[in-house]
Every structure is written in structure tokens, then in C-alpha cells.
Write a protein that binds this DNA or RNA. Sequence first.
DNA 1: ACCTGAACACCGTTCAAGT
DNA 2: ACCTGAACACCGTTCAAGT
Lengths: 243, 243
Amino acid sequence: MAKARTATGGKRMANAPTKRDRPLTPDAIVAAALGLVEAEGLAAMSTRRLGQALGCQAMSIYYHFPSKQHLLDALVDHAIADVPIPPPGPAPVERLRRLAHAYRAMAHRHPQLFPLVAVHRLNTPTGVRFVEAVLALVEAVVPERERAARYFRALGYYLVGAALDETTGYAKGPSAAAPVSDEYVAMHCPRLLAASPYFKQAHWDATFALGLDALLAEMASGTIAPPPVPRPRVRPKTQRAPD
Amino acid sequence: MAKARTATGGKRMANAPTKRDRPLTPDAIVAAALGLVEAEGLAAMSTRRLGQALGCQAMSIYYHFPSKQHLLDALVDHAIADVPIPPPGPAPVERLRRLAHAYRAMAHRHPQLFPLVAVHRLNTPTGVRFVEAVLALVEAVVPERERAARYFRALGYYLVGAALDETTGYAKGPSAAAPVSDEYVAMHCPRLLAASPYFKQAHWDATFALGLDALLAEMASGTIAPPPVPRPRVRPKTQRAPD
DNA sequence: ACCTGAACACCGTTCAAGT
DNA sequence: ACCTGAACACCGTTCAAGT
């Protein structure tokens, strides 16, 4: 809403006008879309603006992707494929820690795209293979199958929540359209005021590491009592599908 | 994209046509918007559709809210105000556990709205007071100010990530436009296949509780070594603001 | 004070047509 | 095979006008 742009193509020069010399390809579209998203935000990545950046019409994109949703899936796939799985060598818990940091680093390389990644189910080939690799590492740390499955999930919650907070926090402005004043906080929220220095960007690394290490410590030690197993549900249907 | 609706007001009867009898109020608009979001999804909540549900023109809303963003902020505020802070009585760690479950329960009451909540900074009066209350509980569990601030953040990451996964997972369809086949998973992802029963909805409660209890256990025990304190940054500017 | 109509600058997507 | 033009059904928001 309220994009500061005037009429048709006011600032075409700004973003690589890219007179098409070579033919359009899916890869070129993905690359341009990633650039546009990080340069101007997810909302600015419309088919018309993307065509402008590519030097073609909006509709040309539809020859290579059947819908915008398919293109967005390709962007998410790109981001996921951008997370390196740590090679064997270090202890499993150390490899898992590095993987968590690698996932977070991906989010920081794609801060504008990440909110989309966070909300996407990873059920593409790239996605399920990433999940499989993470699960393998979690199972190397947590021997019991059930606890491993649950901690895989819990670790994912933490990673997505952390990366989302770090990317949406600084990439966006003051989210609330009518934000609260510093005076109000000073008056009503003494603890928040006292804690706020630790919420600044300089502390993000240490905070992320603390929560991650807390989870990893419990995963490795296994001191938490196993939760009650849910009773088998009423409907006796099949049970399959990745999620 | 591709909403299955035909032309103008094809199914006006479906959603409370609500011939306006009483005058429009901000509360009535918020209530209708919440209903529309949960009934049809965030994307369906346009000013025109909302006007239709309220029995007024789209533009009437702008007399009560200066922009759609302000209205969305009010919806998020409503959700946050909908999380009860557990009353004194039980031990602090138990109250904090209950607060975490209450936050998750709010997400489940607003599954379509929650992705917006997850991405919103809580810098409205309602938001900062909620943060203050949570922080007070965390500080009752974690005595050191710095660790308390960091664990407050880490717990928030976990809660948001968990609630987001649980709400976007079942509220949305198979996110990827071209999802992977069960055969592909069976072929390439044996661990995912084996773990998938634990990823089903019947196991969500137990999985959420395990990760939460792991974090709470570390918070209460304080066994994780404090992370290295970041050195003071170059720019010697002011340091304030809630985030 | 409260609400509306018409208009503007956008969207994603369809379809038939161009090369 | 690859790309385009015009059109359709939408958006949020502005502005002047109605009651």
C-alpha cells in the first residue's frame, strides 16, 4: 500500500532495465525475482514489475512458470538449497549446531524473502531432501525415534521463529501503524525498558546461540520426561505423507 | 490468487449481508474483519469484501480507520489481548508454561490471522504491556537480567515458530504448487517417512510440550554457559526504544 | 458527523494473436 | 517455440460530494 512511485515505469533505469538480448529462462526469471524481492520487498515483486526488470512483458513469465505461486515456490527452493549441510567430521551435536547457524545465515542472506520461506511447507524435492538431511543429524544426536522426531520439529520451530524475528524486525519499519511512544514504555514497562539493550542487533548472535544451545543440551542429555503418547484417534485411516 | 468467485457479489448471502441498521463502529469493523479472515482467509479480507460483509461501501471503513494497515494492527491487538496472563499462585516456571500454552491456544483460535501476528512487532500499548507481563514471568524464573532477556527472546522464537507451523500447516493446502509425490519421499527420504506419523496433528501437543519443557528446564537450571558478550559497537549513538 | 460514487494506479491471469 | 496486447475481475486509496 502507498508505494512511492508515479504512474508507468517512472524509475525503470534504477533496477537493471535489461533489454532482453538472450532469451528468457526460468533461471533468469528466478534471479531477477530474487533481486527484486531483496531490493524492493516481497510486495513489490509483481509480474509487471518483474517483467520490467527483465525487459519483457508480464505475460512472458507465464510461458516459463504456470503461475506466480510456482515462481514463489522456486524462490523458496532456491533459499533452501542455499543452506549447506555440514560435512561429516565433528560430533553430531556440533554438526547440528552448525546446520542451525547455516539456516539462520540463509535467512540473513534473504531477509525480505524469508517470511515466505517461514510459511512454506517444504514439500518439493529440494525441500524433502533438506528435511531428510536435518532429520539424519537430529537422529544422530537423539537415539530414540520418537524423541528425535519431536526434537526435529521443536528445533525447526525455534529456527524459523528466530530467523523470522531477526528478518522482519529490521527489514520492516515500526510494524504498528500507530506505534507506542518511548514515554509510554518508560512509564508502563520498566522491565522492557531495562531489557531493551539486550534486544538490539548486536546481541542477536548471543541470544540465538543461547536458545539453540539450550535445546541441543536437552536433546543430547535426554532429561526431559517423554510426553504422554496420544491415544490412537477414532478414524482408522491410512498414515503416510511427509506432513 | 485464483479465487473461485464470479463477478460482483456472487455470493453475498453466504457471509452475513448485514444490512446496516446500527451505525458503523471500529469494534463492529474489527469483529467483521476477524470473522472474514477466519472464514475466508487473510487474502480475502479486502476493503470491498469487508464492506460487503458490513453492508456498507469499502470507503466507509476509511472514516473509522485511516488505512487498512491500521485495521490489521487492530486485529493483531485483538489477538494479543486474547492471551490470558496466568494469575499468581503456582510456581513461576509453571505460570510461564501456562502462558506459553495460552499463547499457542490463541494461535489456534485465530489460525488464519496468526501468520500476521507472527510477523508483527508488538509496539502498540496492548503489545508492550503483553511483553512486559511475559518478561516479568521470565525474570521470575531466570534471576540474571541478561539471561532473562535472552531467554525471553528465545522462548518467543519457539512460541512463534511452533504456532506458525501448526496454523499455516493445516490451514493452508500443500503450499508448494507442485508438491512432491509420496513415492519420491518413500524412495529418497526413509527417515522422513519413518518420522511422519509423529508429525501428524495428534502429536502436536506432545511435541510442543517437549520443546517448551526443554527450554524451561534450561532456563530454570541455568546450566548453559553464558554466551560471549558482544563488544560495544563502533557508533556511539543513543540506545533506547523497546526494539 | 458519517457515508458514498467515481476515479486512479495498481494487481494476477485468460485468451487469442503475433513472430 | 516463445512472446505480446488487450481485456477481465479484482486491489487500496484519493477526492469531492452527498446526507
